[in-house]
Design a protein around this nucleic acid. Structure first.
Lengths: 141, 141
DNA sequence: GCTTGTTAGTTACAAACTTAACTATCAACA
DNA sequence: TGTTGATAGTTAAGTTTGTAACTAACAAGC
């Protein structure tokens, strides 16, 4: 490909970023406006709601998010009374994290919103193309 | 979809983010390590290299990047001697931005690297799927 | 028990981004 | 000419992120 022909609009990392930003804007607006949450908080909340009690390290590894971001998200979710921490007696370095009722409510609401969002996207792209897109994205992640 | 079945791994905004981060990591490492540039600087450099002289506002609109980010990127590219600014006499609020030789060299190198990157990605996905992916991403951006 | 090394999580500092003023210039028009 | 409003670009304040230390607790070997 010659220099003169190269366009950002045909460069995959650029297109990925544009699409990711555009799409995450739609969904992040929901947890931001309704609960004042940041993206890492949503991911932590999701893990606890979906998989039950976990430690910060387990979430960090499962979500591939650095432990300092997890630490701050846990602190902010605790301030919101969305989760409870309890030191594990057999290893006092570790905390067991669980959702409290307000956190569970938020989780329920947001999972429903996420599923709705996904449905609308599938309707917009056609379910064949939506599945195809996800398959391709998984290859790149 | 029921609550228990919902997985981040099937949520398109999540997959988009993961893929975008993973891919942009590969390419951003190049302009970061070699030239100490940030993403906005790369995009500004690209616009000037690809389209010739432009004003900050024109780049801002074309790249859909906020003017404060452009302002700082231009400042940092000027410190690197990658571009020159020249006030336009007919409207002294506006600056004409042009690449200097070191900036041109960086542009040439990075465009080549980007094209190589794109080729490798196409080889990895197969050129049919790579084209398909780009088409789908454009729909979402 | 006393090192030495490792691990879970937090804190501190700097870099980067967001948003909202702000400065300088221009254009329109009374 | 002088006032009013718009525009290009910068600066400033607050927020979020990234990286590197740091604390507290554990584990293994002596």
């Amino acid at each position: 490909m010659s220099h003169e022909d190269f366009e950002l609009a045909g460069f995959t990392p650029y297109l990925l970023n544009q699409a990711a930003e555009a799409q995450s804007l739609v969904f992040s607006k929901i947890y931001k406006d309704r609960y004042g949450m940041l993206r890492t908080e949503w991911r932590v909340l999701f893990h606890l709601g979906r998989y039950g009690e976990m430690t910060a390290k387990e979430i960090s590894e499962s979500a591939m998010i650095h432990k300092t971001k997890i630490s701050r998200a846990v602190r902010d979710l605790e301030v919101k009374r969305f989760l409870a921490r309890e030191v594990i007696e057999t290893d006092r370095r570790v905390e067991r994290l669980t959702l409290r009722p307000p956190g569970k409510d938020a989780f329920d609401y947001l999972v429903r919103a996420a599923a709705d969002y996904e449905d609308r996207l599938a309707a917009r792209l056609g379910s064949g193309e939506a599945q195809l897109l996800k398959r391709l994205l998984k290859k790149l992640g």
